[in-house]
Write a protein that binds this DNA or RNA. Structure first.
Length: 285
RNA sequence: GGCCCGAUAGCUCAGUUGGUAGAGCAGCGGAUUGAAAAUCCGCGUGUCCCUGGUUCGAAUCCGGGUCGGGCCA
């Protein structure tokens, strides 16, 4: 049995050129591409999510692109469940899995594994959405004061998540988390990946160009085609803005501008994330 | 040509009776293991158009310019 080739992770901000770089590496290493992007998983928003085109996919196997219905929900855990078998299957054929994407949390599940914490509970989340941040904090405070002190108290999502775990397990999150996450030092030595870094101004130009192309090449049509479908996909950058354009609230120019702003801000958050992943080899591009 | 209005942060603008200025957006930095292209936290970046004057002190009041917009010719 051939020794499994460890996957190569190709990370970077949106519009930094990951797709092109990954294709080159696929050529060089004899690899196959695995999607590492939370939104390119969905079918129907290929243009909006800047998924590789049919042309680009030609020549190399591409996995996990457009595999979810737009109405489906997904999370990092489900992505992990989907991606691991794909990766080992590629390895079993002696090829190199090249995981390409910008979704930090999703990639982190692949590189570091999921925590033993329970997954999200839709019903409970709906219930907590109806509660105020103060109520949630008070409850968390009562159950797990340690967690209440260290959680990001202004972020209702995070407070809810902490409380959700307490409610689901009947235990304290802070204790459940303790012990996990410490073993990363050794683990990270075995990881292989690059972070494509592009100068900010250059990146901004690429974002502006890509946004313009997206809008003229069908992103608007994608959004209007999915008008009746609710779900995870709606949080993609551009959906909100395109809907405002379609309703006549803003002009096309404003729509484009707002998408550019949102995309730049996203790119900045991605850079903040990858900066912390010290195991990534930084590659100025 | 005459009259009127405006000029303050990258943009749109606020600024009380004179005490060297602040909002939104943009931008920058950060957090982030099960919603993550999500969500949240922090940071004001300034020839207050120029110039002379009044005043202890001018973004603010007065004179003269410059530029932009409007009205009348």
């Amino acid at each position: 049995m051939p020794k499994a080739v460890s996957p190569l992770f190709v990370c970077g901000a949106t519009a930094s050129g990951k797709t092109a770089y990954a294709l080159r590496m696929a050529e060089e290493l004899g690899g196959e591409i695995v999607n590492g992007d939370a939104f390119q998983l969905f079918r129907g928003i290929e243009i909006l999510s800047a998924a590789p085109s049919e042309e680009e996919k030609k020549g190399f196997h591409h996995h996990l692109f457009g595999v979810l219905e737009p109405g489906e929900s997904c999370d990092a855990g489900r992505y992990f469940e989907m991606a691991m078998p794909v990766i080992s299957e590629i390895q079993s054929r002696g090829k190199t899995p090249i995981v390409v994407g910008g979704s930090g949390l999703y990639l982190k599940f692949l590189t570091h594994g999921p925590s033993p914490l329970p997954k999200g509970d839709e019903k409970m989340r709906a219930e907590m959405d109806g509660q105020t941040l103060e109520e949630l904090l008070a409850e968390l405070e009562a159950i797990d004061p340690v967690e209440a002190a260290q959680v990001n108290r202004g972020n209702k999502r995070y407070v809810s998540r902490s409380l959700e775990i307490c409610r689901l397990t009947g235990e304290k999150v802070s204790e459940l988390r303790d012990g996990w996450e410490k073993k990363t030092q050794e683990l990270e030595k075995t990881l292989r990946g690059v972070w494509l870094i592009r100068e900010r101004l250059d990146l901004h130009e690429r974002i502006a160009l890509r946004t313009k192309q997206m809008l003229s090449r069908g992103a608007i049509e994608e959004v209007s085609a999915l008008a009746e479908i609710y779900g995870n996909w709606e949080k993609a950058i551009g959906v909100k803005e395109i809907r405002r354009f379609l309703s006549g609230e803003i002009s096309r120019k404003e729509c484009e501008e707002l998408i550019v702003f949102a995309t730049r801000q996203y790119a900045k958050r991605q850079e903040t994330w990858f900066r912390r992943e010290k195991w990534l080899e930084q590659l100025e591009i």
